[in-house]
Amino acid sequence: MRVRRTGRVLAAAAVLAVSLPGTPAAAAPAPACTVLRVVSTSPAGPSTVELVRLPSGAVESRIPLGVEVNALGYARSQDKVYGLTRDGAAVTVGRDGELTRLGPVRTTDRRGLDRATAGAVFGNRWYVQRGDDLYVIDIDPGSDGYLSAVRGADLWPAPFTSGIDDFDFAGGRLYGVTSTWPFSERVVRIDPVSGFTHPVPGP
Rank of each mutant, 00 (worst) to 15 (best):
T107V: 08
P104D: 12
A75Q: 04
A116H: 06
N124Q: 13
G123I: 02
G119K: 03
R106G: 11
A58R: 15
Y74L: 04
P55C: 08
E98W: 07
A90E: 02
V67I: 15
S56W: 10
G83C: 05
R95A: 12
G83E: 03
E68G: 13
D87W: 06
S61L: 11
G112L: 00
L84P: 04
K80Y: 06
T117C: 09
L72C: 10
T92Y: 06
T85H: 03
L54K: 08
T107D: 02
R125K: 12
A75G: 06
P104S: 13
E60L: 15
S77D: 14
G88W: 04
R53W: 09
G103W: 11
R111C: 07
R53K: 13
T108D: 15
L113S: 06
R86D: 11
D87S: 15
Y82S: 05
E98V: 15
R125V: 15
G119I: 07
L54S: 12
E98I: 13
G123L: 03
L54I: 01
I63P: 00
R111A: 13
A118H: 05
T117Y: 02
V81Q: 01
G123M: 01
L54Y: 15
G112A: 02
V91M: 11
D79I: 00
D109R: 11
V67L: 12
T108W: 07
P64I: 10
N70T: 15
L102E: 08
T92A: 03
G94L: 07
A58C: 09
G103F: 09
A71E: 01
P46V: 07
A90N: 05
E68H: 15
N124D: 14
A118V: 02
L99Y: 05
V121P: 02
G97S: 07
R110E: 14
S61T: 13
P46L: 01
I63K: 15
S77E: 14
G88K: 05
R95W: 04
L102P: 04
R106C: 00
G66D: 07
A58D: 15
E50P: 04
V49W: 01
T100R: 15
Y74F: 12
A89R: 15
Y127D: 03
R76W: 05
R53F: 06
G97V: 01
D87R: 12
G57I: 11
V59K: 13
V67K: 10
V49H: 02
R101C: 06
V121C: 07
S77K: 12
D109Q: 03
P55F: 10
V105P: 05
L54C: 13
L84M: 10
Y82L: 06
T117W: 09
G97K: 09
G97Q: 05
Y82E: 04
N70E: 13
T117P: 00
E50I: 04
R106P: 00
L84I: 02
V69D: 05
